[in-house]
Amino acid sequence: MEVQEFKGTANYIVSEDLRNSVNVSITLGRPLLIKGEPGTGKTMLARSIAEGLGLKLIIWNIKSTTKAQDGLYVYDTVQRLYDSQFGDHDVSDISQYIKMGKLGEAFLSDNPVVLLIDEIDKADLEFPNDLLWELDMMSFYIPETGVTVTAKHRPIVIITSNAEKELPDAFLRRCIFHYINFPEPEMMVNIINVHHPHLEDKLIHEAMEAFYWIRTLNGLQKKPSTSELLDWVQALTVGGVSLDKIRREIPLLGVLLKKNQDFDVILSRLRTQSTNKTKTRSHSLWG
């Protein structure tokens, strides 16, 4: 089965850059490594690729305790021990105790799949190195049963990273790399329209002005990201906030900011701004 070209989907806006990178990785059969600020839709990308190409998506969520072996297969020795002690099973066939991991599942699938290895940087430093061979050769060996598992179709592998740890060079050499930029305002309007199609232009405009203003401020510990803007826009509509208040007071700030100190920064900036405004107004009255 020939995998077609990825063109994006109706509910995920993809930049031309990113679309090209995805297609390069699909054509060359190499994993695509995605980095970018939190909230720029790294995980959503894999979903969108799967949906756009009509393929099944397999997600392997990486945690700090995940080992490369977990993704291949697990040999359930405890179950075998139980079975042998109670004697109601034939335990001589080890293969019934071999459980496939996410990578193994992707290899054995009858149709091509999209495999998302999410937040690979969470795992141990050696984790990516342990997967080199498997991702290169698309096969692995199970010594317990003497079976080699080979991918029926090369899965489309998408890997995301939050740059918490540096990834090993040998691993990077085998990947196609893409860095998702923070969306420009025009792109952001498209993204908002996709998620909340029936909003007034004025509301979006006001909210965007306030949002990008906040992002330009120095000294924030965590800048608000796309997903927070989407929540905020929704909160503004539900809360029925009047339009002229949005930029002046930034209501429902808690949706955008998650740190106490950031709150103080914004509030003090708003306060100085409004006093400045009244000052200039009084000046003009005198002048």
Binding site: N20, V24, T27, L28, L33, K35, L172, R173, I176, F177
Partner: peptide, 22 residues
């Protein structure tokens, strides 16, 4: 494989995706 679409900007993006890892 023709992934650069025979244009300089195509080449710019493909080469960056393949060569630059950070």
């Amino acid at each position: 494989k023709g992934l650069a679409f025979s244009s300089l900007s195509g080449f710019y993006h493909v080469a960056r995706a393949v060569l630059v890892k950070s």
